[in-house]
Computed example of a mutant assay.
Amino acid sequence: MKVLEFTPPVPKEDSVVVDEDILPYFYNYFHRHRQLQITLILRGEGTLMAGNYSQSFKPGDVYILGANQPHIFKSDSSHFNNPDKLNAHAIHIYFDQDRIPCPFFHLPEMESISNFLSTTQNGFQLPSQYQNYVSRIIKKLPIKSNLDRLLTIIKLFDYFAKQVRGWKSLDSGLSNTLFSESEGLRMTEVFQYTLEHYAENITLNKIAEIAHITPHAFCKYFKKHTRKTYNTFLNEIRISEACKKIINSNHDGISTIAYSTGFNSATNFNRVFRKTTGMSPRDYIREYKNKASLYTN
């Protein structure tokens, strides 16, 4: 398994490609492609990994993923239990800037768009207050002609550059260039194993075995490529899963969430949760409920 080179499924290469997925689960491989990607999640939940950054995703989310940024939308395990059910629905837009002559982006009218595109290497999540407007635009793209798609995307980039504030960065400090083809095999196996077994007691010896190196070498290797310890990365995955359980009300209390996501005590869970999110689990629940009431009223 490695960081796969992915080609958008189209009969011919255009500068803008729109692909609508309605599937049992999302594309299940850590991959990258030369096109910038915009994704609107319409149905399905899981974990997004971009580089070594991770967080949960849910319906309504809109993401920008940079050109050649390794990523995976990993569906929740429940999506794999019933392969006949279409749990995943998303619209993906692939924008190939290299197919547009450079002088076009040097026009004075394109300055703000060019500046915005230069910042997308590590990806963004669109703030929630802009989701409805952007979603309406994206949903209309599959039926538009090739030229209309390009013009719409240019206008959308202009909106992103001039109107949107408070982008959430998907950058955790990892340079995309660190994922060479040869190293993609090892890092992807580590990421995939962690996503599938985060609730278990993953020892250093076990994860080093997955990476096919000694525990001491693994600690140095992982820190070099991610600028964080494996334990920090594992805790981020666990807290991301805990947040999903909180949002889905899929729990009987804080202690239940703690043990179901791999923590050995509620005290340790509370400490790591606060360190990762900047608030306690109870404050997170309160804030989520407050936001939910604003959108439903």
Rank of each mutant, 00 (worst) to 15 (best):
K2R: 06
F6H: 06
V17F: 09
V18L: 03
R34E: 14
L36D: 10
Q37H: 07
Q37T: 15
L42V: 13
R43F: 11
G46M: 07
Y53A: 08
S56T: 05
P70L: 11
I72C: 02
F73K: 01
N82Q: 14
N82V: 07
P83N: 08
D84H: 07
Y94A: 13
Y94G: 12
P101M: 08
L107S: 11
P108R: 04
F116Y: 13
T119S: 13
Q129D: 08
R136S: 14
R136E: 13
R136F: 03
Y159M: 07
F160T: 04
F160I: 07
A161T: 06
Q163T: 11
V164Q: 11
S169T: 12
L170P: 02
L178P: 04
S180K: 12
E181K: 05
E181S: 10
T188R: 01
T188H: 10
F191C: 00
H197F: 09
L204F: 05
A208T: 12
H216G: 00
K224G: 02
K224L: 09
T232P: 02
N235T: 00
S240D: 08
E241T: 01
N250M: 00
T256W: 01
N264D: 14
N270C: 15
K275C: 04
T277Q: 10
G278T: 07
P281A: 07
E287P: 01
K289I: 10
Y295L: 09
T296W: 06
